[in-house]
Amino acid sequence: MTTLDRVAKPKTKRSKRFLQSREPKLTENVKNAMIIKGGNTSETVTNALKDIEFFSKKSDCSLFLFGSHNKKRPNNFVFGRMFDYHVLDMIELGIEKFVSLKEIKVNASCPEGTKPLLVFAGDAFDTIGEYARLRSILIDFFRGPTVSAIRLAGLEHILHFTALDGKIYMRSYRVLLKKSGCRTPRIELEEMGPSFDFILRRTHLASDDLYKTAHKQPKALKPKNKKNVSHNVFGTKFGRLHMQKQNLDKLQTRKMKGLRKRGGDVMQGEDAVSPKKSRDE
């Protein structure tokens, strides 16, 4: 939806700014998530998706987390994300075990809005397609805003996902930086909660085609490759120069007395000028 597509023009500057903020951009906004609590009936579950798409357009949220519970699929989470206001992929996770923040008594939990460290462990996250996609969704959910710099002392929260034995263990720990004697600190972890034991249920993944379009990088953001510059294995930089042919006739060589222009030539030049002078007079 570009500006041109809109036949009805925004009437005020404010609405224009608002619509512009919703337009596709080269570097995108941080993705927002909405978290929806489902009812018990299956009808709500089916209708929920429609609502999610509707609300995603209203509130400009491209991530959603839908929680529901029924007999067939008790304690159900649906993690999903949108592309262009349509569902790109969804993954259903069942909660097998849940320990909340309050249950784990820790004197200090980490402050809100800290950017967590994310660690995925297990070969499944690399080899199995659904798990790899789940990893991508979870990164999207939990990575927080992209920042250019981070305070090293502020790294105090870690989310650890382990794919093991057909289950996914999500644990969140508080990071304690201990002195190690060298610059890099030694890490100790303290369980903080919440922690989940998930089991993978149904999945609804985007087709490869759509997934590819969603990953398309704008041309403007791609780094321009520099012409005529190359690097070898050792990191040495090579450049190729293109030079025009040198004019050897005008090359300045060593000045010598014998090669100097003769005096007669100079005199002729003066003679040519003199009649003009006389005319002026």
């Binding site: 570009t2 080269l26 906004n29 994300r81 949108m82 262009d84 999207d140 969603a214």
Partner: peptide, 10 residues
């Protein structure tokens, strides 16, 4: 890590 865009490329 390449993550999908929220909206198509303008």
């Amino acid at each position: 890590t390449r993550l999908p865009r929220e909206k198509p490329v303008p």
